[in-house]
Design a protein around this nucleic acid. Structure first.
Lengths: 235, 235
DNA sequence: AGCCTCAAAGTTGTCAGACCAATTCCGGCA
DNA sequence: TGCCGGAATTGGTCTGACAACTTTGAGGCT
C-alpha cells in the first residue's frame, strides 16, 4: 500500500543539453581523470557527442557553476572534483555581508556538532591515533606561537574524517573557505579563538570515550568561543 | 597583529561573462522581481548589456545550474530565488545510491537538530502560532488517514522558518527532495514514520518553552524513527 | 649542451546570423 | 461567448568566424 508523499519533478533542461551533460558526467566517471587533469577540448567533445559547440560550452558552464570543472582560456578545461551520473548537486545560496556570515556559522554549528557525535560513535583505533597526533601537534604549536590556525584546521579535518561520512568534510571545508572569503583575506588576530584551545582535548577525550553527547557538548563549547570572536571581529 | 590562516582564491570566469553575470545579478537584486516572475528575453538582455547571445545564454546556464533561474522553451526564463551580487554559492556534490542516501540523512540530522534548537531560542509568538496551527492540522490528518506526509512537511518547514535562518530551509528542502528522488518516485508506505508522530507535539512544546536542549532531543527522536523506517525501506 | 626568442599551433572566449521547436498571443469564426 | 488557427515571441541548437591567451617546439645564440 502506498501514499503520495508530496513532491514534484520538473524538466529543467532540454534533450540535447541534458544528454550531453549526462555524457560528460559519464565520461568523467568512467575515465580515470584525477582532479587537476585536463578534459578533452571542446571541439573534440563536440565531434564525439555529435552536438554543436555552443551546446558543449553550455554543458561546461553548467559543471563550472557547480564547481566540478574550471576553464582556463588558451589552455583547456580542468577537472576539479570527480563526479558520476549519480552525483547529486545541491547548490546553496548564502547572502553576503554580516548577516550571511552569521547564518552560515549557525549552519556550520549543526554540521560540526553532528560530525563530532558521529566520530564519537564510529572512530576506530586508527582514527583516534590520527586525531590525537593532530591534537598534539596543535597543542605544541599553540604553546609555541600562541595560535595554531592550520594545525587547528588539521585537527578538525581528522575529526570529520573519523565521522565516516565524507559529506561533512566537503561541506565544512567549503564553509570554512567561504567564511574566510567573507572575512576578507583570511587574516585574523593571532589570539583568535585561543580560549577554545583547552576544549579540543576534551573533545578528543569524548570521542575516544565513544561518548556522543559529550562530543556534542564540547564541540558546542568550541564553536561558542569561535563565534564570539568572529562577532567581535566583524564589528 | 595578524597571522596567515590559510586560504586561496582563484579567477574562474573571463571578463565579459563574469561582467554579464554580475550585471544579471544586479538586475535581479535591483528589480523587484519575485520568484516565479519572468526575466527579460535573451535577445533583450543581449542588446542591453551589449554582448552576444551566446554569452547571455552561458550566464543563464550558470544561474540555472545554481538553481536561481529556470528556462522554459518558448515561454521565457523564470526567477526561482532572489539573489544579489553579494550572494555566495556553495555547490555541494553528494554521491547517489544507498550509501549517499544514508550519508545525506546524517547531514540532515545535524541541520534539523540545529534548526530546532534555534527555533526554540528565537521563535516569537507569531512563529509559535504558525507552528501550532501546522501541528494541529497534521494531527487531525494523521488521526483521520493514519499518515500525514504533506502536513508533516508543512510542520517542519514552519520550524525551519522559526529558526530565523533561511539557509536551513533552503538546504533541508533540497535534501528532502533529493531523498525522495533517490527513493524513486516519492511513494512510501502509509504508516511511514507513524511512530514519530507523538514527538512532534513534544518538539513543539520544547520550542514554545524556549528550551533548545529539549528541542534538540525531540528532533533526534523523530529522526531516529524516520531513519529507521527509511533503512527498512531501502533494503 | 644549455638557454633564450619567437612564431606556430592549440584552446577557450565571443560574436553574428540562421533556423528549429515550443509556447503564447490575438483576431476571426462559429 | 467560446473555440480555433496562424502569427509573433522565446528559448534551443548549429555553423562559421575571429580574438585572446597559453603552450609548444624549432631555431639561433652563447
Amino acid at each position: 500500500m502506498e501514499a503520495e508523499w508530496g513532491s514534484q519533478a520538473r524538466r529543467v533542461t532540454s534533450a540535447r543539453t541534458s544528454g550531453a551533460m549526462r555524457a560528460v558526467a559519464e565520461y568523467i566517471g568512467r575515465s580515470d581523470l584525477q582532479p587537476g587533469d585536463c578534459l578533452p577540448p571542446e571541439r573534440e567533445l563536440m565531434a564525439e557527442l555529435s552536438v554543436g559547440r555552443s551546446t558543449i560550452r553550455e554543458v561546461i558552464r553548467h559543471w563550472q557553476a557547480l564547481g566540478v570543472v574550471e576553464s582556463r582560456r588558451g589552455s583547456g578545461t580542468y577537472l576539479l572534483r570527480r563526479i558520476s551520473p549519480e552525483t547529486m548537486h545541491l547548490p546553496l545560496a548564502v547572502d553576503g555581508g554580516r548577516n550571511g556570515l552569521l547564518q552560515m556559522l549557525e549552519v556550520r554549528r549543526g554540521l560540526e556538532v553532528e560530525a563530532s557525535a558521529l566520530a564519537a560513535m564510529r572512530a576506530r583505533a586508527a582514527d583516534l591515533e590520527r586525531i590525537e597526533s593532530k591534537l598534539l601537534i596543535m597543542e605544541a604549536v599553540h604553546r609555541e606561537k600562541g595560535c595554531a590556525g592550520p594545525e587547528d584546521l588539521a585537527f578538525h579535518l581528522s575529526v570529520y574524517d573519523a565521522s565516516g561520512n565524507p559529506i561533512f568534510n566537503q561541506l565544512l571545508s567549503q564553509m570554512r573557505e567561504s567564511v574566510q572569503i567573507l572575512f576578507g583575506m583570511s587574516r585574523v588576530r593571532v589570539d583568535f579563538a585561543a580560549r577554545s584551545f583547552p576544549f579540543h582535548r576534551k573533545l578528543f577525550e569524548a570521542i575516544a570515550a565513544k561518548d556522543p553527547d559529550a562530543a556534542r557538548a564540547n564541540t558546542l563549547s568550541i564553536l561558542a568561543i569561535v563565534e564570539e570572536d568572529i562577532k567581535d571581529m566583524i564589528r
